[in-house]
């Protein structure tokens, strides 16, 4: 059972501003049924077109998603658009007295929907949907590099786990975790070239050797086997299996499912491991 604050429970059990505004000035949508949560915001400005006079939400999601949406509408009612643009997911979470770490993405969803609704009013983009800007990093949940970087910056995140808690990225198949690590490794100001600069063969060999010595060999030795690095040509890595592993009927599986996987994770995603007997 989640440890929700009294304020989360209150906004979940008695959500404020539920519904759709007729003839709204701006509409924003984020999420989908497949992802497990979705939020639709619509707002109307006052007569001078300065402040948010009325805002309503519809949410598909868990208790904290509903509470975050409700809280967001309370926070921004009466705000100027400029002030509303500065509302972050942190403001939503703080308003609710905090959210469980794994539920922080609910507050991020609120901020994104607000952004999409204001963009819609200001005529940025054509649809009311939250626009995916830049490269999609997490394909399972459709999370872009920009979203990840923004959320890291707003919340001072430092680990992959935190990024997953806040954006969901990396929370399903886990394939994008190395990319998230790369994003975490460089500051948002740094150019991306640095991150994608190809490795020299020397760097590659060094990294492969380290990974084999520190990670792969100890695991294999634990099972009475051993491994020796023979050669590295580009992304092709040749090894020899020794001890119990040589001649083991499952050695091919060990090679692809363990050795190659570890090297791909630690060194480069395109590495191919070959065995010589």
């Amino acid at each position: 059972m989640w440890d929700y604050t009294g304020k989360v429970k209150d906004h979940f059990l008695n959500p404020r501003n539920v519904g759709i505004i007729e003839d709204p000035d701006g509409v924003g949508e984020v999420g989908s049924m497949a992802c497990g949560d979705a939020l639709k915001l619509s707002f109307k400005l006052d007569e001078k077109k300065e402040r948010i006079a009325d805002i309503k939400f519809q949410t598909f999601g868990c208790a904290s998603a509903i509470a975050s949406s409700s809280a967001l509408t309370e926070i921004v009612t009466g705000m100027t658009l400029d002030a509303a643009k500065k509302v972050t997911n942190k403001d939503i979470a703080e308003y609710l007295g905090g959210l469980p770490a794994q539920k922080m993405h609910c507050s991020v969803m609120g901020r994104e929907a607000l952004e999409a609704a204001i963009d819609n009013y200001e005529g940025v983009g054509e649809s009311t949907k939250h626009e995916l800007e830049g490269e999609v990093v997490c394909e399972c949940f459709g999370v872009t590099e920009k979203e990840i970087r923004d959320t890291i910056r707003d919340n001072h995140l430092t680990t992959v786990e935190e990024v997953t808690n806040y954006t969901k990225a990396g929370g399903s198949c886990g394939k994008c975790i190395p990319k998230i690590e790369t994003i975490l490794g460089i500051s948002p100001e740094e150019s991306q070239v640095a991150a994608t600069k190809p490795m020299t063969n020397l760097q590659r060999i060094q990294k492969i050797t380290e990974t084999i010595d520190n990670k792969i060999r100890p695991a294999m030795q634990g099972d009475g086997g051993d491994i020796e690095l023979i050669d590295v040509v580009g992304e092709e890595v040749t090894v020899r299996l020794k001890g119990a592993c040589s001649g083991c009927p499952a050695s091919q599986v060990t090679l692809t499912d363990f050795v190659q996987k570890e090297l791909r994770r630690a060194v480069e995603p395109d590495i191919v491991v070959k065995e010589i007997k």
Binding site: W2, F12, L13, M33, G36, D37, F60, G61, C62, A63, A65, I66
Partner: peptide, 14 residues
């Protein structure tokens, strides 16, 4: 359809 399980469980919990 159209609703999320945790929200149902917590309302039943009440």
């Amino acid at each position: 359809q159209y609703v999320e399980g945790e929200a149902i469980l917590l309302l039943m919990n009440e």
